[in-house]
C-alpha cells in the first residue's frame, strides 16, 4: 500500500442532517504545500478537524501516514486551529516549554528565533497579547515542530501583511521533503505563490484537485482567477 500523508476514503461528516463533508475521497502526497480552498462553510475546517481527531467521522475513514486519528497520528500532525487554544494565563515561554515537553519533534531554538523575528515578547502572558500576536505565537509553536503533516487552518487571516510574508517564508523554509503542509485559507492571492497543489471543495464535496503548475500551463490562469470562476456567486 502506498503511504499517503493524508488519505480520506468515502469520508462524510454530518452535523444533525447537514452534511459538512460528503463522501470525500482524496489522497495527499508527501513533500508538497497544498492549499485547501473553498467558500465559507465548504467543509475546510471540518476536514482538518477530522484529521486531528477533534471530530469523529459519520462515515468513511481518514488516515495520517496510515494511522487513524489517535496517539500515533497526533505525534505526526502539527495543527494550527482557527482559534486561540492556548490557556490565557500562560506566558509565551510557558507555552514553548509546554510544547517542548509533549512533542519530541519540537525545535526550541527555531521557536526562539522565530519569536524574536516576529518581535513577540517572550515573558508576556497570552491574555495581555493582541489577537494578531497570539496567532503569531501559535504559528511559531506549530511551525517549530518537525512534523510529517502540518494542518494550518487560516494561518494568516489575523496578522498584518509584513508578518504574513514572514510566516509564508517560514512555512516554505521549514517544511522539507518528508512533510506535507495543508493550508486552509480564503486569502488565495497571498498564499498562491508558495502552493504546489490546491484542493477546491464546496458543500463538503471535492470540486478539483490539481497542481498549481498544470493550472498555469494548461489554462494559463492563477488559482485566484480560477477560484473566482469556479465559485462565482
Amino acid at each position: 500500500m502506498s503511504e499517503a500523508t493524508l488519505e480520506c476514503t468515502g469520508l462524510s461528516k454530518y452535523f444533525g442532517t447537514n452534511p459538512a463533508l460528503h463522501n470525500l475521497s482524496i489522497s495527499l502526497p508527501t513533500g508538497k504545500i497544498i492549499g485547501l480552498l473553498g467558500p465559507n462553510g465548504s467543509g475546510k475546517t471540518t476536514l482538518i478537524k477530522l484529521a486531528c481527531g477533534l471530530l469523529t467521522p459519520t462515515e468513511g475513514n481518514i488516515r495520517v501516514c496510515g494511522f487513524e486519528p489517535g496517539i500515533e497520528s497526533k505525534t505526526l500532525v502539527s495543527y494550527l486551529p482557527e482559534r486561540t487554544y492556548l490557556p490565557d494565563w500562560m506566558t509565551v515561554m510557558e507555552c514553548i516549554r509546554f510544547f517542548q515537553d509533549f512533542y519530541a519533534d519540537f525545535d526550541y531554538d527555531r521557536a526562539i528565533s522565530m519569536l524574536q523575528a516576529l518581535q513577540v515578547p517572550a515573558n508576556a502572558r497570552m491574555k495581555t497579547l493582541s489577537k494578531g500576536t497570539r496567532e503569531k505565537v501559535q504559528l511559531v509553536l506549530v511551525m517549530s515542530r518537525r512534523a510529517r503533516l502540518y494542518l494550518l487552518d487560516e494561518p494568516i487571516g489575523g496578522v498584518d501583511p509584513a508578518a504574513r510574508d514572514y510566516i509564508l517564508g517560514t512555512i516554505l523554509k521549514n517544511y522539507n521533503e518528508d512533510s506535507t503542509v495543508l493550508i486552509s485559507t480564503h486569502l488565495i492571492a497571498d498564499v498562491e505563490k508558495i502552493l504546489d497543489e490546491f484542493i477546491f471543495i464546496q458543500n463538503g464535496q471535492l470540486v478539483s484537485y490539481a497542481s498549481t503548475d498544470s493550472l498555469r500551463e494548461d489554462l494559463g490562469k492563477s488559482i485566484d482567477q480560477y477560484f473566482r470562476e469556479v465559485f462565482r456567486c
Binding site: 497526533k74 500532525v77 492556548l86
Partner: peptide, 18 residues
C-alpha cells in the same frame, strides 16, 4: 471543563496522549 470541552480542548486533544 475549560481544558476538555472549550477552546483549550483543541490543544488537549491534539497532544500525543491517549
Amino acid at each position: 471543563y475549560k481544558n476538555l470541552m472549550c477552546s483549550e480542548g483543541y490543544l488537549t486533544f491534539t497532544l500525543p496522549v491517549t
